[in-house]
């Protein structure tokens, strides 16, 4: 049906058409090229490029454009290091104090397997939010880590891992402060702390002391011993839970030592 000449004609005509359009477009592209602003290009190059979205813009290119148009702040990129922010400020020609300390997520619960009491056995989907939708989790304590690691899936840099004892562990070096884990965690057990923090009150329970003691062996019972032992440590007790004011740079080791529940732990 098809002889060689038809095949040849088909081949040649389509190739030539394609070549013709290709060359015309290349020529048109020369004349119609849109120059990307050098500044915008530099900004985009300087950003971390993880496209985490923590700045509220769609990816790093979006943030660069926001910066370029003056809508975004140089400090608006949580994962950027101080050097990166300084470089961004330099490109934009502005002076910004970039030495705010980096914050990282930390788990405020140490009630792992064998320490926290369970209210019921859960056999459903292995997802913290699914579990939380049932009586706010299977632990007696409604504030602690549920241990299914929804935050692990949310983390763009694999900075969170299971610790093998029913909790998760955060690798501070990998954390880029995007707070995605905090957004996904149903109990709010993850909180941002300065990366240089020496101790953490590793409990999130707002229950009264007696209730906490029943629910978990390592829960903060709001006994205020930490504040008495380390008055310079910036401990404060609110809602039956101790917390540390990290802007106070006092000694906290003796409080950690004295804590009856041993829930003030070294930040590592």
């Amino acid at each position: 049906m098809f002889d060689l000449s038809t095949i040849l004609a088909a081949f040649l005509s389509i190739s030539l058409l394609g070549a013709f359009f290709g060359i015309s477009l290349a020529i048109a592209g020369k004349y119609l090229v849109v120059k990307k602003e050098q500044k915008l290009y530099d900004l985009e190059r300087s950003l971390p490029g993880v496209n985490c979205g923590a700045c509220g813009y769609p990816g790093c290119a979006g943030f660069a454009e926001g910066l370029f148009l003056g809508k975004a702040e140089v400090t608006g990129c949580p994962p950027a290091s101080a050097e990166v922010k300084a470089r961004l400020a330099e490109i934009m020609g502005i002076v910004v104090d970039v030495n705010q300390e980096k914050k990282v997520a930390q788990i405020h619960c140490c009630g792992g397997t064998g320490l926290a009491e369970f209210a019921f056995e859960y056999d459903g989907v292995k997802d913290c939010n699914a579990l939380y939708s049932m009586y706010q989790g299977n632990k007696v304590c409604k504030y602690g880590c549920l241990g299914f690691g929804s935050c692990i899936g949310a983390c763009p840099t694999e900075a969170i891992e299971y610790d093998g004892k029913g909790l998760v562990r955060i690798i501070a070096d990998k954390c880029i402060s995007c707070e995605k884990c905090i957004a996904v965690c149903p109990t709010g057990v993850l909180k941002m702390i300065p990366v240089s923090a020496d101790y953490v009150v590793s409990c999130n329970s707002n229950d009264k002391g007696a209730a906490t003691k029943k629910a978990c062996k390592v829960g903060c019972i709001a006994c205020k011993i930490c504040d008495k032992k380390s008055p310079e440590g910036g401990f404060k007790i609110e809602n039956f839970l101790a917390s540390i004011d990290y802007s106070v740079k006092g000694e906290r080791a003796s409080a950690a030592e004295a804590c009856p529940a041993k829930c003030i732990v070294a930040n590592k």
């Binding site: 004609a9 088909a10 005509s13 389509i14």
Partner: peptide, 13 residues
């Protein structure tokens, strides 16, 4: 060239 069967391809191009 009697290659109207290539209409769709050519037009899309």
């Amino acid at each position: 060239f009697n290659i109207t069967f290539l209409q769709t391809v050519a037009f899309i191009l």
